[in-house]
Design a protein around this nucleic acid. Structure first.
Lengths: 350, 350
DNA sequence: TATTAGCACTCACATAAAACGAGTGCTAAT
DNA sequence: ATTAGCACTCGTTTTATGTGAGTGCTAATA
C-alpha cells in the first residue's frame, strides 16, 4: 500500500513552502484547506490546479490527508512534524519581550506555590493546559535534617533540601530516646549528610558511615531513623492546570478526544512517565499526536522542556494541547518558562 | 401568575406517592415521564387520564414541569426537594454493609493522603465527583512547635497538631540566634502553647503570655517568631476528585452545564465557601439545583456532611452530581463517610 | 515538461417537507 | 371522582433536494 520510495523523497522548496503554509493555515482556521481559496489567500502565483497537484504529491508522501473525498487537506502527524521541525530550525531562542518574568519571580519562596503558579501561568498564557513535573526529591541536595520526638516511640524526621523543599516523615522506633539524644543525632546527621543528594546518601553515604570505625555504635540508631525516613521520599509530583481550556476547544467536544482528556486527568501517572523521559533531554521536546506512545491519549500534542538546578536537569515543564496547536506561540513560551524555572531554582539552592 | 394557595397546599397520599415515583423514574431513566407508560410501569390502578390530572396538579404546585408542551413531566428543584425529604424521613442511618471501612482505615497516617483517598473513594463509589474540605488548621490543637535554624536570619518553624497535621513555615528574623537558643524557645513554646487550638493561641494565649510577668524578655523573640509563623496558617484545603464522572453524563454535554463544571474546576473557592457554611450543621445537607446560591453553578446538586474531631465539627465531605442524582445511594454514602472520617480523625488526635 | 483551463463528479452540510409517536388538555359519559 | 375518546402539539426521525467548496482527470498551452 505505502509507496516507500515516495515516502522518503526530500521535499523541494516549493513543496516545503506549501506544506508549511497549509499547516499554518489549518492551525489558524481549523478547517480543511482547499486549493482554490488557499492559493488566493497566500498569493501563490499558481493556479488551483497546480496546487492540487502539489497537494496530491504531499498527500501521497504522507504529509497531508483528506477527511473525506472531495474535502480539502488536513495535516497528518507527519505534516505537523515537518512544520514543527521547520519552526525549530529557524527558532531563535533569545527572548525579546515575553514579559512574564515578574510573574514568575514574585519571590515565591514556598516551592509548592511555585509549581502551582508556573502551571497556572503556562495554561493562562498558552490557552491550553500547563503541566509541571516537580524535581524528584532524590536529586536534590540535603541541607539539614532534624529529628523531633512526637511520642516515646515515634519520631518526626524533617528534611530540608537546598532547593527549599521540606519533607516530613514519621518514623516509629522500638527503643526509647530522649529529645536531647535526638538533637545530638540531628547534628550528627546534618554534619555527615549535608551537601549530598538524597540519592547519593541512600546509595553510598549510609554504607560508608556504617563502615567507618569512628561512627560510634549509638549513632547507629540515628542512621537507622534517617534511612527509614529517606527510604520512601515521595516521588516527583505532577501538576496540571487548565484542562478547562482544552474542553473549550471545538475539536475536543468529539467523543474520542474527550476520552483522551479524561484519561489525562484521571491518570496523571501516564503523563508523569512521559515527561520523565524528557528530563534528561536538553532543549524543547515536542510530541505530536501518535508520537505520544500511549494508546489512551490521542489527538493531543505535548511541548515540553526540562529545567535544571545548576547543571543538573531535575524536572520538566510543558503545555498540552490539540495536535492543531499554536506551536509558534507555545514553543517560545515553554522554552522560556523552562529557563526561568532553572534560573529561579538555581538561585534558590545557592 | 403563581397561584400561591395552590403552592402551599399539602400533598395527599396519592399525590405524594406519584410525585416520588415520578422523580424516582426520572432519576433512573433521565427521560421525561409521560402518563401512559408511567401508569403501566408502576402498576398504578389508574387510567393515564387520571394520572394526567394528578400530574397537572403537581405541575401547578411547582413540583413538576414540562420541557415543552406535549412532553412528559420532569421534576423541578422543588420536586427533587420533596423526594429527598421523603427519603431522609425514612432514612435509617444505621449502616449495614457498606464495606468501605477497611478502605478508609488502611492506617493512612499522613493526613493529606487521607484526603486524597477519601475523595477518590467518594467519587468511585458514587460515580459522581467527591469533595472534601480539610479541617481548618486554626481549629486543630497544637501538639508541638519546633524552631530550626536555616540561615543566620532564617528560621524554619514546624507545627505539629494532634490530628497529625504538619505545618511548616519559614520566618525571617533580624537578630542572630543560635540553634541552642532556638531549641530553648521550642521547649518554651511547646510547653506554653500545647493543648490550645491555633485559633485560641492567636486570639488569646499570645497576649496572655506577653502580659505575664514571668515571661522573660528574651522569650519575646520566641513569641514573635511563633506569631509570624501562625499568622498565615494555610486555609482549609479543598479536594475534588472524579469530575470525569460528571463529564460522562449525557445531560452534562449540554453547553451551559459544561460551563458549570468548568467553574467548579476553575474556582475551587466557590465550592469551598459553600461547603464551609455546612461545617457547623449536623447531619446530611443537600442542596438541589438553584439551592446552591451561586449563579456560576447550575444544574448540579450537592450532598454533604460535616465531620468532627471529638465533638467539634471541623470539615466536610460531599458528593457533587447532577440534580438528577441517585440520592438514594449517595445520601448513605456521604453520611457514612462523614462518620468514618470523624472516627478516624478523633482516634488520631488522641 | 510544467502549468493551467475546463469539466464531470463527490460529498458534507443546510434546508424543507413529511411521517411518526409519545405526549397533552379537554369534554362528555360512566 | 374516574375514565374513554379525540383533536391537537411538538420534538424527533426520515427522506428528499439543493448548494458549494472541493476533487481528479484530460487535453490544451507556454
Amino acid at each position: 500500500m505505502k509507496k516507500v520510495f515516495e515516502n522518503e523523497r526530500m521535499l523541494d522548496e516549493r513543496e516545503s513552502a506549501v506544506l508549511n503554509s497549509i499547516v499554518y493555515e489549518y492551525i489558524a482556521t481549523g478547517k480543511a484547506v482547499g486549493s482554490r481559496s488557499f492559493v488566493q489567500k497566500y498569493s501563490f502565483s499558481l493556479s488551483p490546479a497546480t496546487m492540487r497537484n502539489i497537494m496530491y504529491d504531499l498527500e501521497r508522501m504522507g504529509y497531508l490527508m483528506q477527511p473525506h473525498t472531495s474535502a480539502g487537506r488536513v495535516p497528518t502527524d507527519k505534516g505537523y512534524r515537518y512544520y514543527v521541525n521547520s519552526l525549530l530550525d529557524s527558532y531563535d531562542s533569545t527572548f525579546q519581550d515575553l514579559e512574564i518574568e515578574e510573574k514568575i519571580f514574585q519571590r515565591e519562596l514556598q516551592l509548592d506555590k511555585i509549581f502551582e503558579s508556573v502551571t497556572k501561568m503556562l495554561s493562562v498564557i498558552s490557552n491550553y493546559a500547563g503541566v509541571m513535573l516537580s524535581p524528584n526529591p532524590d536529586f536534590t541536595i540535603l541541607k539539614l535534617i532534624e529529628l523531633i520526638q512526637l511520642e516515646s516511640n515515634e519520631v518526626l524526621v524533617i528534611i530540608v533540601t537546598r532547593t527549599g523543599m521540606i519533607l516530613t516523615k514519621k518514623v516509629n522506633i522500638s527503643v526509647r530516646v530522649t529529645q536531647d539524644e535526638l538533637s545530638e543525632y540531628s547534628k550528627f546527621l546534618t554534619r555527615e549528610l549535608c551537601g549530598y543528594s538524597l540519592n547519593q546518601i541512600k546509595e553510598n553515604i549510609f554504607k560508608e558511615l556504617r563502615d567507618d570505625r569512628r561512627t560510634s555504635t549509638n549513632k547507629e540508631l540515628a542512621l537507622d531513623i534517617a534511612q527509614i525516613a529517606l527510604s520512601e521520599t515521595g516521588d516527583a509530583k505532577i501538576n496540571i492546570d487548565g484542562i478547562e481550556n482544552l474542553l473549550r476547544l471545538p475539536e475536543m467536544v468529539e467523543e474520542s478526544r474527550l476520552k483522551s482528556l479524561l484519561n489525562i486527568i484521571e491518570e496523571k501517572n501516564i503523563l508523569k512517565e512521559i515527561l520523565e523521559q524528557y528530563i534528561e533531554t536538553d532543549g524543547i521536546n515536542i510530541l505530536i499526536g501518535e508520537e505520544i506512545e500511549n494508546e489512551k491519549i490521542s489527538g493531543c500534542s505535548l511541548v515540553a522542556s526540562s529545567y535544571k538546578i545548576g547543571n543538573k536537569p531535575v524536572g520538566a515543564v510543558g503545555v498540552i494541547g490539540p495536535t492543531r496547536m499554536d506551536y509558534e506561540k507555545v514553543v517560545p513560551l515553554v522554552d522560556y518558562t523552562g529557563k526561568a524555572v532553572t534560573g529561579l531554582l538555581t538561585k534558590m539552592s545557592k
